[in-house]
Structure formats: C-alpha cells, structure tokens
Design a protein around this nucleic acid. Structure first.
Length: 290
DNA sequence: ACTTTGACCTGTGCGC
DNA sequence: TGCGCACAGGTCAAAG
C-alpha cells in the first residue's frame, strides 16, 4: 500500500495521539507478521512513553522513553487506526476485525479510543525493536531521503553510475533513493520525460539530453512526493489515514493505472502503455517519454 | 557485484 | 454461483 507520502500522512495522523502517551498493554493476535515478533516484544513496549514519531523511507519510528525504538513497516496492506472495542475482554470477537494483528493500549492520550490497532491483511508489514535504529539492519542500507539536502543530482548520479538495469528498477531500490514505490516512480519518470526502460547508467554518462533528464528527475521526484503529501496520499484500495478518511492524490495520477487512456500532456495524443518490469507494472507515455 | 525471479500472504475483479 | 487466473501500494533471499 504505502509509499513515502502515505507513510508520512499516517505519521502525521498518529503524532498528536501517540506522542506523550504511555503504552499500557500490547496484545498480539498472532506470533508473526512478515517476521516473527522479536523476543519479549510486548514486555519491552509496556510501560514506555512515546517520545516522538518519525519516518525514514517507508518506516515509522516510535521513539520510546526506555531507550527502545519501535520500527514499523506497513508492507502492502498495513494500516493504523483507533478502534472501538466495547468490552473489557480484548479479542477479535469484540470490536476488532479479522486482520487486526497488533493492539497497543494507550493511556494519557486524547485519541478517540485507547486502542491503537495495526491491521494488515497480507502481513507483508513487520514490527521490530532497536536501541540503535539509525544503525539497525533496516535503516543502515537506505539511500537519501528525497526531501533532504543529501538528495541532489550529484548524489543520484553516484547511486546510478554503473547500473545496467532499467531506471525504473533502480528507483525502486531503496538504497538509491528512499521512499519511492511503484506509483511515484512511474509518475516521476513521466514528469521527467524518461522512458522507464532507459538504462540507469545512461542518465549519468549518456548524452547531454540524458544528463539534463537526470537533473530534472530530482526535482520531479521531490515535486510529486510533495504534492501527494499535500493531497493526503493516494488511496487505491485499502489505504486510509488514521482518522479513516482517504487520500485523493490518485486523482492526480498522469500515468499510473491509465493504460489505454490518452496522455494528459497538452497537445499529446499518445496512449498510455503498461509494461512489466521486475515483475511490476510500469505505466508510461511512449510519446512523452524517451 | 549486479540483476532478475520467485516467494511471502490475502483480497478482489474478471472471464468462462 | 463457482472456479481459476491475474493482479495489487513492498521487500528479501536465492538463483542467474
């Protein structure tokens, strides 16, 4: 489900309710998501206060008062919401749904209910704890944040140099730039006029035109992500904000999901194509993108 | 070292 | 109505 904009909207939605709150109790309705929960997962959370919530790439980081950080990745279908159980007994028969796997019972919060529920039908998401999150195995290998100063044409060129694979696949690699997923890669490449099949290294050592495309791409990545955040993210299927409302950037897609439709660029009568790359769909305009 | 493929899961929508 | 198949916002291990 969520790429950088969606994860950030969820962070924004959670922050007012979880920062300053205490985790009283943790309920796990199963022993694992994508990974088995770490040893003593619930115990290490219980009693801790949430000091801050931040985002790195597509990870949410809950900084806790006990020197632990809770890392949460939403995979394809993960989501947080505040639930409304009407019984003291906590189990999925009372107020929870089939895929509510983790429940954090909070105190000291103005949230709609004390129960912060993590739901994830496909279970591609995961949670883990770390006392040194910046150096943990998940975050250590990530590339620059798109909105950080470290993300610029020089840095992107360095990360693309020598890569013979398609630019589409390279941008999905979280070590090249952090936080992009299938939707926003398609949209950024469209805006930059780059065919998704172009070899990544050609944008570094290719023609003058290619190098200009690389420089433009940096700006378009920032722009499309920024616009998506301003629109509350993109809701295709099950992505919802913490308050249950949907994003609306999906109405701003120029190519994603528009196979067979006419290109929206002024004066262009091209037809949006869909191809498969790295087992993912790529959408592009064969006229605008070369 | 790099690149591609398959696996991990469930749900939904489509054609027959 | 049911069945089989393709496909879906991500990541990782394994194979090439």
């Amino acid at each position: 489900m969520p790429e950088l904009p969606e994860v950030d909207i969820i962070r924004q939605g959670l922050a007012p309710f979880v920062v300053g709150a205490r985790i009283e109790r943790v309920i796990l309705n199963r022993p694992d998501l994508r990974n088995v929960f770490p040893p003593s997962f619930a115990t290490r959370l219980e009693g801790a206060e949430v000091i801050n919530i931040s985002r790195r790439a597509k990870y949410l980081l809950f900084t806790l008062s006990n020197n632990e950080t809770l890392l949460s990745h939403l995979g394809m279908s993960g989501n947080f919401r505040f639930g409304r159980p009407d019984r003291q007994t906590i189990n999925i028969k009372h107020g929870f749904e089939k895929h509510d796997h983790v429940i954090l019972e909070l105190s000291g919060t103005h949230s709609p209910t004390p129960f912060l529920i993590y739901s994830d039908p496909r279970r591609f998401g995961f949670m883990d704890l770390s006392t040194d999150p910046q150096n943990c195995k998940y975050l250590k290998k990530l590339g620059p944040e798109p909105f950080g100063n470290e993300f610029n044409a020089v840095a992107l060129a360095k990360n693309l140099a020598g890569r013979r694979g398609a630019i589409k696949a390279a941008l999905l690699d979280q070590g090249v730039v952090a936080g992009l997923g299938n939707i926003y890669v398609c949209e950024a490449l469209y805006r930059a006029g780059i065919d998704p099949r172009v070899r990544a290294m050609d944008l570094v050592t290719g023609s003058r035109e290619r190098i200009l495309q690389l420089e433009a791409l940096v700006g378009h990545i920032k722009d499309v992500l920024g616009e998506a955040i301003a629109s509350g993210g993109s809701t295709l299927k099950d992505y919802k904000k913490v308050d249950g409302s949907t994003g609306y950037f999906q109405h701003g897609f120029k190519v994603y999901g528009r196979e067979g439709e006419t290109c929206l660029a002024k004066g262009c009568s091209g037809t949006i194509k869909r191809i498969s790359q790295s087992a993912r769909s790529s959408f592009y305009c064969p006229v605008c993108q070369s």
